[in-house]
């Protein structure tokens, strides 16, 4: 019995060692960014400065705050991501529910197609989509050259509302698995009481689906907030945080009329990245408990 206790103790220590070192690997780059964002340029070349800034300064933050157009860009990014995430949530939940609960011949095919959209690299369809949005026309309704939908919110709205946005196949998959695993008796009761499919879905099924809804919403929100590729393609003029971050350091140098050294540009970029992730960290801080638990309860696994 005593031997067992000793082995358990050793295993416990080993476990902590492994977990602490992995956490260290993940957190270290973040810490390095935070620490360096308070340094002045000369600290970078000072061999004796490692973790603690010698010349503490908030100047980097001030500069990046101004040149990232922080308040406007943040507001735009948050509002845009919120809208797109809600649209994706609505469409993917509807589709996922339809695939999970109604038996019809095309269901298997539609599900397979949803998975297929995940496998195809976005580079394949991005150029044709770009041209279709550039020369947007509807046969018999709008004449051929069409209108330019680029540099507007519409490409994103169309794609989100139809469940073909970024990684939406995954959301459809998550929602389908969730509804497949939830009990049927509530719905049957609702049907007997005379509710139609839509009423049953909204009033009976959605309230029980909150864990899955939260995780899909958060994924959609975070991925839209982080997106650089699609917004850069279809809406390059948008003042979004991921784009202003990209050019902020260069703009700062330009406004001073100088060139910065590579190290200093990285320093500014690091500061910008902290400003960029800060809202996500706050969001994650508020929801992490819910998030991680709900992943388990959604039964993504099925």
């Amino acid at each position: 019995m005593k031997r067992k206790y000793v082995i358990g103790f050793i295993i416990g220590i080993l476990r902590y060692l492994v977990i602490v070192s992995i956490c260290y690997v993940i957190l270290r780059p973040l810490l390095a960014k935070i620490v360096s964002s308070f340094m002045m340029e000369q600290d970078l070349y000072d061999q004796t400065v490692k973790w603690i800034p010698r010349n503490f300064t908030l100047e980097n933050y001030r500069a990046m705050y101004v040149h990232m157009k922080y308040l406007i860009a943040l507001r735009n990014s948050l509002a845009f991501s919120l809208l797109i995430a809600l649209l994706q949530l609505a469409s993917c939940t509807l589709v996922g529910y339809g695939l999970a609960r109604f038996r019809f011949r095309a269901a298997k095919l539609i599900f397979a197609l949803a998975i297929f959209t995940l496998i195809v690299p976005p580079q394949i369809i991005i150029l044709p989509l770009y041209l279709n949005f550039r020369f947007f026309s509807i046969p018999f309704v709008m004449p051929k050259p069409g209108i330019n939908l680029l540099d507007s919110i519409w490409p994103f709205v169309f794609m989100a509302a139809s469940g073909t946005g970024f990684n939406n196949g995954l959301f459809i998959y998550i929602m389908r698995q969730f509804f497949k695993n939830s009990p049927k008796s509530l719905e049957e009761a609702a049907y007997i009481d005379g509710a139609n499919a839509m009423q049953t879905f909204v009033r009976v099924m959605l309230p029980g689906a909150v864990p899955a809804l939260v995780i899909v919403f958060l994924f959609a929100f975070v991925w839209q907030y982080n997106d650089y590729f699609f917004t850069g393609m279809y809406w390059s003029k948008a003042v979004l945080l991921s784009h202003t971050l990209d050019v902020a350091a260069a703009n700062y140098a330009y406004s001073l009329g100088t060139h910065f050294r590579g190290h200093y540009i990285s320093l500014l970029n690091n500061t910008g990245m902290i400003l960029f992730i800060l809202p996500l960290l706050v969001l994650f801080g508020f929801t992490q408990r819910y998030f991680i638990e709900s992943v388990e309860r959604t039964g993504i696994v099925g």
């Binding site: 469409s91 339809g98 609960r101 019809f104 269901a107 794609m159 469940g163």
Partner: peptide
């Protein structure tokens, strides 16, 4: 119902 619920995705796809 199944077709109606999945319609957005089918059109979008």
């Amino acid at each position: 119902n199944g077709h109606l619920f999945t319609l957005p995705f089918v059109i979008g796809f």
